[in-house]
Amino acid sequence: MIRTLLGRAGLVAAAAGLATLLGAAPAAAHGGDAPDGTDYRTRTTGVTPARPGLEVRVIEAGARLELTNRTGRAVEVIGYSGEPYLRVGPDGVYENSRSPATYLNRTITGDTALPAEADPAAPPSWRRIADGATARWHDQRALWQESSPPAAVRTAPDREHRVRDWTVPLRDGADPVVIGGTLDWVPPPDAYTWWALTVVGLLAVGALGLAAATAPAGARALSALGALLIVGGALAVGYPVGRELDAGAQGVGGVLVGLLSGQVWSLLTGVGAIAAGWYALRRRPAADFVVALAGACLALFAGAANAAVFARAIAPVPWSPEVARVMVAVLLITGTGATFAGILRLHAASRATARAPRAEAAQRGSTPAG
Rank of each mutant, 00 (worst) to 15 (best):
G242A: 10
E244A: 15
G238D: 11
L225D: 10
L259H: 01
A213V: 06
L235S: 02
V252P: 06
A249Q: 03
L228Y: 08
G248H: 03
V241C: 05
L260T: 14
A247M: 01
A221Q: 09
A219F: 06
V231G: 14
A221S: 13
V255N: 00
V255A: 01
Y239I: 07
Q250E: 14
A234W: 08
V257W: 00
A215F: 04
T214H: 15
A247K: 01
G251I: 08
G232D: 11
A212Q: 12
Q250K: 13
V257N: 02
G238H: 09
A236Q: 08
P240F: 05
L245F: 04
P240A: 09
L260E: 05
V252Y: 12
A227R: 09
L256H: 00
G233P: 05
G258R: 01
L256T: 02
G258C: 03
L259Q: 00
A219Y: 04
Q250M: 09
L259W: 00
L229H: 12
G242P: 05
V241P: 00
L245Q: 07
G218E: 07
G218C: 10
L235Q: 02
A213Q: 04
A219W: 10
L228T: 07
L228H: 08
A221G: 10
A212F: 12
A234H: 06
E244R: 04
D246T: 05
A249E: 03
G258P: 01
L222F: 07
A215E: 15
A234Q: 09
A234S: 14
A234T: 14
Q250S: 15
L235K: 00
A213W: 02
G233H: 05
I230N: 10
G218H: 08
L229R: 11
A212C: 12
G251C: 09
G242D: 10
A213E: 05
L235R: 00
A227I: 15
L229Q: 15
A217G: 11
A219G: 11
S261N: 12
G218M: 09
V252W: 14
A234D: 07
G226Q: 06
G254P: 01
L228I: 13
L259P: 02
E244N: 12
L229S: 13
V231I: 15
L235P: 00
A247R: 01
G238M: 11
G251A: 10
L222Y: 04
I230A: 15
V255Q: 01
P216C: 07
S223Q: 13
G218Y: 06
A217E: 09
A224D: 06
R243F: 01
Y239H: 15
P216W: 04
A221R: 04
V257M: 01
A215Q: 14
G248D: 04
V241W: 02
D246V: 03
V237F: 09
S261K: 08
P216Q: 06
L225K: 06
G232V: 03
G232T: 08
V252D: 08
E244I: 03
A213C: 13
G253R: 03
A249I: 03
A217P: 00
G218D: 08
A219N: 10
A221N: 09
L259E: 00
L245C: 05
Y239C: 02
L235D: 00
G238Q: 11
Y239T: 07
G253N: 06
A213N: 06
G232I: 02
S261D: 12
S261M: 08
P240L: 10
L225Y: 08
D246H: 10
G248Y: 02
